[in-house]
Design a protein around this nucleic acid. Structure first.
Lengths: 345, 345
DNA sequence: AATTTTTACGCAAACGTTTGAGTTGACGTT
DNA sequence: AACGTCAACTCAAACGTTTGCGTAAAAATT
């Protein structure tokens, strides 16, 4: 499909110039006289000339597009992140190709392969909860593909990373629950292997320890599929509700887990916060109008995406190989609402 | 950036064959002996050969990618639609390039231009609420770019279209409100020019007329920016709440408008459904756990995306130009919840 | 006037494929 | 033995750019 079929050749023919002259004129080369440049530029303008991106890519060896891998686009947190990525990439003349891993290791590997095949200039990835082995990514990095991790990062690969203060967010949320009079606080989180899980778990534990509360193993539930699988999550909730003493609060560690847990509690007629309080990491814009309104740890999703993209493009555009890598940590924000209403009075 | 720098040339050199033989062998041409094919295939496999997509695109004149324009990715309805698109495109070896119009005409034009520049093979678009003039799209279509509309379609351009039964959805929702005892039903919708708006408005009006209820102009509020602009929406809500007689129910016509209206009513301490009932088009997975749970008109978003993509790819892959265009209308589903609880008893 | 320098442009190869048009040698046909 | 047929390759052009190098003519320097 060639629309506006006008090429550099056509211009050359019309203007009785050589292709190279036209090319150079368009790129404002010093080799070309002002007069000719003007002639060419105006002709190009008038005929709405656009260089063929495929030819340019082929010649220049880059595609001006970057790949994104997230678990699911249909998730407030990730769609906001992508929004930020798209915004930054776009403003720098790049476009983004999005793929979803649906938290599956196999899909992740497949997607990354597909993206590479598509000749992306760089990769933005939040690794799937299922993913434990990151060899596929390391290999690519060694071959020279710029990679920036966001959200779920790998400690085994050195590169720029953008995360939020997961520890702080969980710590703050847990402390808030404790201050509100809750004593038996459970934690539902994703896969054990995930960096995010570890950090949030540490924040949860630290807050408890600091207040002299015992950390109970049976209060900590892992969901390998990050709550995508509702059965998995339901089992976790059921087990929690059956444990002795029954938890009076739950801290949920991801957007999907938070909203799904809320839905499950509703279905089971477990009242929030009377039977069990709920605080969760979530970026839903509906937190205010949920029943009850949801106390949430909010992440600067747009900024995560924007920043990660900015960093990736800086690697891509860098002349020399990067050796110093940055680890950006953005703050979370705790929005206190009714789902964690104080137990006192 | 060239990873796995292995090209068809390298294979040819190693195997003492010509480039064309290798190329043909890889494409399983009848001109090549089985023995050679096997040799080449195995070598390619072993060295993880991947044809350079840019070279292929340049040569073949297509890019195996399709462009998508939605108002905002950060919207449950659209992210679900995109999910469906990505799924279908991916399974046919295409990838998608997503852009957002943020309901702005200018951005839409700019994005479409950018996509064309990127040499997409086809376009999936839901036009912005602001867009009244579709000349930019018609021109592209005339130049041979396959286009499929979804959600917000243009009546002025003939091509495949995928929409839902907007009339039926609105009719059903309005009838449900009437049956529940509500008499003064207002309607907040998007831009007047939009196809979706017109159809939903018609469904709303028909339901009223059928029950012999007067249609009041002041009960119908348009939001040019589709609720993206909160001030605009707030004004609409304020005006409705100030009108005489005050509406006892509102039908909202898009995901964004629905959720934002709910948020606004909360802020203004207007009780749902006691003060005013609310029924809205929405695809949020949180409808069940909202306060109150939200009666919603749900659209088969994933299927819309999947179907639209399937149709676009069929145009792209069609040998002959298409002259007969399909207009797929998918059903909506009304989920009755508490925000429209019956007034009786 | 002979020379070097500068200016402004053209030539041609290259990026990695695809593809129609040759080319070769082996074989079968008369 | 001379011919045509066929299988299995190779050649070379093409897709639309970019870019290093070459080269005229003009300008500047002797």
């Amino acid at each position: 499909m060639n629309f506006d079929a006008i090429t550099i050749r056509d211009i050359a023919r019309e203007l009785h110039l050589s292709v190279s002259t036209v090319s150079k004129a368009l790129r404002d080369s010093y080799e070309i006289s002002e007069k000719t440049k003007k002639l060419v530029m105006e002709f190009a303008q008038k005929h709405n000339y656009r260089p063929n991106p495929m030819a340019q890519s082929l010649k220049k060896g880059h595609s001006k597009s970057i790949g994104i891998v997230v678990s699911s686009i249909d998730n407030q947190f990730f769609s906001q992140v992508i929004n930020g990525m798209e915004s930054e990439a776009y403003s720098q003349g790049y476009n983004v190709i999005i793929t979803q891993s649906h938290e599956s290791y196999d899909l992740e590997v497949q997607n990354v392969g597909h993206l590479i095949h598509r000749a992306i200039d760089g990769l933005l990835i939040s690794i799937a909860t299922e993913t434990a082995d990151v060899e596929h990514l390391r290999k690519l990095q060694q071959q020279g593909l710029p990679i920036v991790f966001f959200d779920r990062v790998s400690t085994e690969i050195e590169t720029h990373k953008v995360i939020v203060d997961n520890f702080g967010g969980a710590y703050q949320a847990t402390t808030h629950l404790l201050d509100s009079g809750y004593k038996n606080i459970a934690h539902i989180t994703s896969s054990v292997t995930s960096s995010v899980t570890k950090q949030r778990l540490a924040g949860y534990i630290d807050a408890l320890v600091e207040k002299g509360i015992e950390v109970k193993e049976q209060y900590i539930k892992y969901c390998l599929h990050g709550g995508l699988n509702l059965d998995e999550l339901e089992q976790a909730v059921d087990e929690l509700m059956a444990s002795e003493p029954r938890p009076d609060a739950i801290l949920t560690a991801s957007d999907r887990i938070t909203t799904s847990t809320m839905t499950l509690l509703h279905r089971k007629n477990i009242r929030i916060p009377q039977d069990v309080a709920l605080v969760g990491f979530s970026n839903t814009v509906l937190a205010d109008v949920l029943n009850p309104s949801l106390t949430s740890v909010h992440q600067p999703a747009f900024e995560i995406g924007r920043k990660a993209t900015e960093m990736l493009l800086s690697i891509i555009n860098s002349k020399r190989p990067i050796t110093e890598f940055e680890n950006v940590i953005l703050p979370t924000e705790l929005f206190i609402r009714s789902s964690s209403a104080s137990k006192h009075k």
